[in-house]
Design a protein around this nucleic acid. Structure first.
Lengths: 342, 342
DNA sequence: TTGAAAGCGCTAACAC
DNA sequence: GTGTTAGCGCTTTCAA
């Protein structure tokens, strides 16, 4: 390291003023004389002075940093296709407000006291954006209840928690309804894990659409999987093995839909000829498979953006009008259903 | 916020010892009496005391945080397919060593003095992992030259910089050679931006393979694009428009290869019948397109892992034996070339 | 308009 | 073994 750290003292002595004056001058306090201010600025420039944020933080009890915490339950946390978009939205807001972004995987239940506390209380961060996970994750509950400013990405019934939610029920309803509208009746639903809110809600939307259209809900058409591509493939295989009779599948996410598509291709089952399929998420991959996947679009970038905005507003004591923000989804029709029109 | 911050003082007074003793006891210093230690620990537990990292950092001049900086040149920085895997590798190491991860997009050239300095010098971070970008990016140069500990992901000819590099030249060579081996002779290369090192190196590998196999290098077969899927599609369209005669394409990355594949499908050009295509990266998407893409695998997760390990070793004054680490790539044969064997 | 001084929470010399 | 003290770099009363 060739350059010594230059502190506020160095600037002060070069400018022949006190450190207090330097601090004031550099923060643009109107009280300080224009001449002095110029003097200080020149000194700072000359020394290439950059205020040490650590010192500032200690004093101000603010870090200008927020943490984005994602569950570490799955092996491929970061690889989750919408993670990147979420991050993009968050990053954009933070950049605009000169906040820093810290990224953590949430601690596993095991080492709670250590890792969990570290993230939560060490005060290197002003607030948290928490992405959703299992509804049984106790750590999340505790983070939320600690009083630490939290924006939760998903449903959370708690007074002092801000949320940004997708309309999972509505999206699933739309997806299912679309299949019904194009004439499908035996609609399989490959669900995500049913201890995840998304899994639960999408199943609910599916049921609701069936009900409203007077189609019998058949347990045999429900397969619980884990949102992975492999599990989607496996689901399709299972359906064949069990000789289930069906004409459509609504997959809980695109990855599973794409997995199923692969099985169909390998087994010469025509999509959408023999079976129509709809996914959920609208990840990029959905546009490169063939047939291209009809799916429910969810605005992940906007969700990240919104979440960051709410958190920063809250941290700056601005009134956050809507505690819950619900982002709507919409149907993207491509090729996997065999209908050209909505 | 319902809980007041509990500091080392609170613990000290509850345990009836000095703050120094608390500090020592909690850090497991062998000098402190076992009894006292237990006393302190109980007090800390009772008060739910978590050391404030800011105070610690200020004193120790270490933050136990490293920054991962990615270029903001492209709109979709985070969406870059291998970004997630890189992050996964980095995160794993940091978790193991109890380091925090800060994520930044590198400042654009415009606001250098502000954003750039902030990242570089505010000392909220102990070291940096810098991902590659344009070879003309001056900010990167300055970060590297500042003396700040940096691990650069890519080639960098500089004494005090650690690097983790892909073998781009070798990978491109292998890809091209594969096409030659299966009998292709008129091989198009869709390059990435030629002011990016990857773009340059992959072109070099391509040329070298041609040379070694005594195939004439034809400028007309080189198209410079920008690594995006759209640009790959555009490249294929361009080739048709210009009525270029060719029987294979080596794309500078998978995204462009997949874009080209799309064009071929739309225009009923058979792959691999009419043209063989090879990509580079081995992103997940390469396995869901049809035909599945033959490509060069690069171990992004391992690169991230290695980079983080090197940085942490360096920060802890361990000797880093290899300044340059070169990660090798290998060919993954799938369906887009029409050869079943390597 | 500027400076002196206190103190944010912590650790590390040094004393005892 | 444990306590006293100083000080990391900064901001912010309070006085001058």
């Amino acid at each position: 390291m060739k350059n010594f750290t230059v502190t506020i003292k160095d600037v002060a002595s070069l400018a022949n003023v006190s450190t207090a004056t330097v601090s004031l001058a550099l923060s643009g306090d109107p009280r300080v004389n224009v001449k002095t201010k110029k003097l200080v600025e020149e000194a700072a420039l000359k020394l290439n002075y950059i205020p040490n944020e650590i010192g500032r933080s200690l004093r101000a009890k603010k870090t200008e940093t927020i943490s984005f915490i994602i569950p570490n339950t799955s092996h491929h946390v970061f690889t989750h296709p919408y993670f990147a978009q979420l991050l993009e939205g968050i990053n954009e807001v933070l950049d605009n407000h000169n906040y820093n972004l810290m990224l953590s995987t949430s601690p596993s239940e095991k080492d709670e006291s250590a890792a969990y506390n570290k993230i939560l209380k060490n005060r290197r961060t002003d607030g948290i954006i928490l992405s959703s996970a299992s509804i049984h994750d106790r750590n999340i509950l505790r983070m939320v209840e600690s009083g630490f400013p939290v924006v939760y990405l998903g449903k959370w019934h708690h007074d002092n928690v801000l949320t940004v939610e997708r309309d999972d029920i509505g999206g699933a309803y739309t997806a299912t309804e679309h299949l019904i509208r194009i004439g499908r009746r035996r609609i399989v639903h490959i669900t995500g894990p049913l201890d995840h809110q998304e899994g639960i809600d999408r199943l609910e939307g599916y049921k609701k659409a069936l009900l409203d259209n007077k189609i019998h809900y058949d347990e045999a058409l429900i397969i619980e999987k884990d949102f992975s591509r492999e599990s989607g493939y496996e689901a399709a295989a299972e359906l064949m093995r069990k000789q289930i009779d069906y004409d459509a599948v609504f997959a809980g996410n695109d990855l599973m839909a794409i997995g199923a598509l692969k099985f169909y291709k390998e087994n010469k089952i025509s999509v959408p000829g023999d079976v129509s399929v709809v996914g959920f998420d609208d990840i990029e991959m959905a546009t490169v498979v063939s047939p291209m996947l009809t799916t429910i679009h969810q605005p992940m970038r906007e969700i990240g953006y919104k979440a960051a905005e709410k958190l920063i507003a809250f941290l700056n004591n601005q009134e956050v009008k809507e505690k819950r923000t619900i982002m709507s989804t919409h149907l993207i029709i491509r090729e996997s259903c065999g209908a050209d029109m909505p």
